[in-house]
Write a protein that binds this DNA or RNA. Structure first.
Lengths: 129, 129
DNA sequence: TATACTGTATTAGTAAGCTAATGCAGTAAT
DNA sequence: ATTACTGCATTAGCTTACTAATACAGTATA
């Protein structure tokens, strides 16, 4: 698991994002236990509270539920929620960016063109990895 | 000028963004003076240093240049740079969002569809204002 | 019941970023 | 030279957010 202690995005956020991806991809099946706080904390060389905070966030999103003494489990529709969450986040990001572009006097067509260029660029980037 | 002392985005950033828009729109013509640090600071009820920081950023971007004792002026190709800057920022934002979407197992088509929905949504939003 | 594992809560330290106070330095006009 | 304007630099206060230390509480098993 790729964790970068430096860099702008907080550790707990990186962890939450990564776990969310795994849940969305179905790596953890419904009602299957996720790694325990401390286990993951040791593996990532991070304080348990930091993992806790990530798990907290995922629980608030409804992806997982925690049982004290037992562990953490993927919620019934956890995978589906995770996918919806990703899409919603993407939509919000796009919306904000588009509004910023409009504020900068860019037309909808121009904004669309820039997006298409980025989409193509992302493909190339993915191919080179 | 709409400045929100609360809210997540720092004052100096709001100021810089707004001035950049004005420069992009050609409100200030080349070599024409912008409001002085203190004048703008008074108008916005903000510390001069905060405006200074915004102007600093715009100068680093090459949009304007400062002359001590004289004031701040729009650079030769300032308006053009401002427009390019906006497009480049938009491209970067799109790129990051797209990569996040791909990481979340979303296909390029799906990502494109979400973007189109956001673009349409932004139009509606603009119409209602 | 003792042990060893789970998650939870409280508190504190630390670092980064933003804003402001104050004084310095250059220009121009009276 | 004085005055009144420009931008610039240094420093400090303040807030916020992140991370960590530590202790508490529930569950299962030997």
């Amino acid at each position: 698991m790729p964790i970068d202690p430096n860099g702008p995005v907080p550790l707990y956020q990186q962890i939450a994002d990564y776990i969310r991806q795994l849940v969305a991809a179905g790596v953890f099946r419904s009602a299957e236990a996720l790694p325990s706080l401390r286990a993951l904390a040791v593996q990532l060389a991070v304080n348990p509270n930091t993992v806790q905070r990530a798990y907290d966030q995922l629980e608030r999103e409804g992806l997982v539920y925690a049982r004290r003494g037992l562990g953490l489990f993927v919620a019934e529709r956890g995978a589906e929620l995770a996918r919806n969450k990703s899409q919603e986040a993407l939509y919000q990001t796009f919306m904000q960016a588009i509004l910023a572009g409009k504020a900068a006097q860019l037309s909808g067509e121009k904004i669309g063109a820039i997006f298409q260029r980025a989409l193509a660029g992302a493909d190339v980037k993915a191919r080179n990895q």
